[in-house]
Amino acid sequence: MKKSNFKAWLYLLPAVLFLGFFMVYPLADVLVYSFEEGYNSASQTFMGVGTYNYRYVLHDPYFLQAVKNTFILVIITVPVSTGLALLISLGLNSIKKLKELYQTVYFLPYVTNTLAVGLVFMILFKKTAYTDGMVNLLINLFGGKSVDFIDGPYWAKMFVLCFYTVWVVLPFKILILTSALASVKQDYYNAAKIDGTSKWRMFTRITLPMISPMLFYLIITGFIGAFKAYSDAVALFGTNLNAAKMNTIVGYVYDMLYGDSGGYPSYASAAALILFAIVFTITVVNLMISKKQVHY
């Protein structure tokens, strides 16, 4: 080892040790747990090595429900929130008056606590003995029938969860996109204007490619964030998510570890690794698509 190399490693040592202990070791451990069959956390013993944990998890209806929920959440909220954020950013970018005010208003949810927001949503949507909730009052006003969004039908609960998720992730996306849009030089638009470019073509041929790195960043992190959703569901539907049929994959992992029926680190590890595989695949696919579509 060259001397300069040695020095470099010395400087890196604290970070390497820290990451090793708190990241790499647990990750490796998860992998080990997931293949140890019949692991007993009290006696720290296991019966054999194999894929039983995976087979169990993949046949567990709660897990399948969680996967379904998570996928619905991802497929709906990522495009909707990104699209909505883009629309709002375009709007913000084109107004002059009160721009700062609107930007602040749109950013507020970002600095608000998730659980507090969840409670507010619950109050808006929940049906109790005393009131049907704000949203239902509105629905009634337009002649609709009350729906119990928190304890009612599956689609209603899913709607609230998606709505809530979009609402929570929107501010950050708007923040990123407004600055991305603002960084596109006016000259490009002026050049396009002189050449008689239509508004739509300006958007698709200039604006979109120019902000594509940021857009792509938001989509990737959006996917990953949505796959890891958990606290949002808890905030809305409480801790017994399996009963509410509103569990997510991360929620399932958590329940397997610490929930009322918990204490199964092997199942939890297997589920976590399945989640990892899903997120990894999707991110790789995203990256592959982006090679063609994103202009750095």
């Binding site: 030089k185 490009y188 050049a191 002189i194 008689g196 490619p209």
Partner: peptide, 16 residues
């Protein structure tokens, strides 16, 4: 501008 039939070369070129 689009109907005037002018070409403009910008100070910083503004190539896409």
């Amino acid at each position: 501008p689009e109907v005037r039939g002018v070409g403009l070369v910008f100070q910083n070129y503004a190539l896409y």
